[in-house]
Simulated assay, not measured.
Amino acid sequence: MSIKKITTAVAIIDRITEAIGNFAAWFNLLLMTIVFVVVVLRYGFGFGSIAFQESAIYVHAFIFLAASGYTLKHNGHVRVDIFYCRFSSKTQALINCLGSLFLLIPVVLFIGWMSWSFVFESWRIYEGSSQAGGLPGVFVLKSFILVMVATLLLQGIGEFLRAILIIKNQDTPSNESINEGAA
């Protein structure tokens, strides 16, 4: 694969990841509203709703799982960088390249493989809440696992390709050029 194609692929992946992350971020407003309403209804009016409480869980799960690729792109995941931060950018890129290839991508594929039947079975029976008055869409909630697999795998490939560009002393697409391309 040529350097130009790799650079283009990284830019496209980054744009997709940014769009998904920005979309998921708006759900924080919905989550805050739901939690606020749940608290006001429960403590202000003595009214509780299992469905409302579960909807907060659903929205939180969507935000957390859909934005996993965005978080990876912005280095927001936990990293033990006692030594990493002292390495040159090429050595960091080599670590990222090997980490993506031998850890991130295989683990994400394993999660996808192991959860596929779990999600499929939930859809097959249209699984609902085990709580009386809960939401009927547990199958949708479980599907967010596959959303995480897709977003994290896509950005994992992007990070692998970005590391290759750095190792080959090539410029990588910056966040500014990504945002300009989206405008």
Rank of each mutant, 00 (worst) to 15 (best):
I6C: 05
T8V: 14
T8R: 13
T8G: 13
A9Y: 09
V10C: 04
A11I: 14
A11S: 14
A11W: 08
I13P: 00
D14P: 06
D14N: 14
D14V: 06
D14T: 03
D14W: 10
D14S: 10
T17C: 01
T17I: 08
T17M: 07
A19L: 11
I20A: 02
I20S: 00
I20N: 00
I20P: 00
G21K: 12
G21L: 12
N22S: 07
N22E: 10
F23G: 02
F23I: 09
A24N: 03
W26H: 15
W26T: 08
W26E: 06
N28L: 15
N28F: 12
L30H: 07
L30A: 15
L31T: 05
M32N: 03
T33S: 13
T33Y: 08
I34D: 00
I34G: 01
V35Y: 01
V35P: 00
V35R: 02
F36R: 07
V37S: 03
V38Y: 05
V39Q: 07
L41H: 05
Y43V: 12
Y43Q: 08
G44I: 09
F52Q: 13
Q53F: 06
E54G: 01
S55P: 03
S55K: 05
A56L: 05
I57A: 02
Y58Q: 05
V59W: 02
H60L: 06
A61P: 04
F62T: 02
I63L: 06
I63M: 05
I63K: 02
F64C: 13
F64H: 11
L65C: 03
L65H: 01
A66C: 04
A67N: 07
S68C: 12
S68D: 01
G69T: 09
Y70N: 02
T71E: 15
T71I: 15
L72W: 09
K73Y: 12
K73F: 04
K73G: 05
N75A: 10
G76F: 11
V78C: 09
R79N: 10
D81K: 10
I82L: 12
F83I: 13
Y84C: 00
R86I: 14
F87W: 15
S88L: 10
S88C: 13
S89R: 14
K90H: 10
K90Y: 02
Q92M: 13
A93C: 02
I95T: 08
I95V: 09
I95N: 08
N96I: 07
N96R: 14
N96W: 08
C97G: 12
C97L: 15
L98Y: 09
G99S: 01
S100R: 03
S100N: 08
L101R: 07
F102V: 11
F102H: 02
F102I: 04
F102G: 02
L103Q: 11
L103N: 12
L103A: 13
L104F: 11
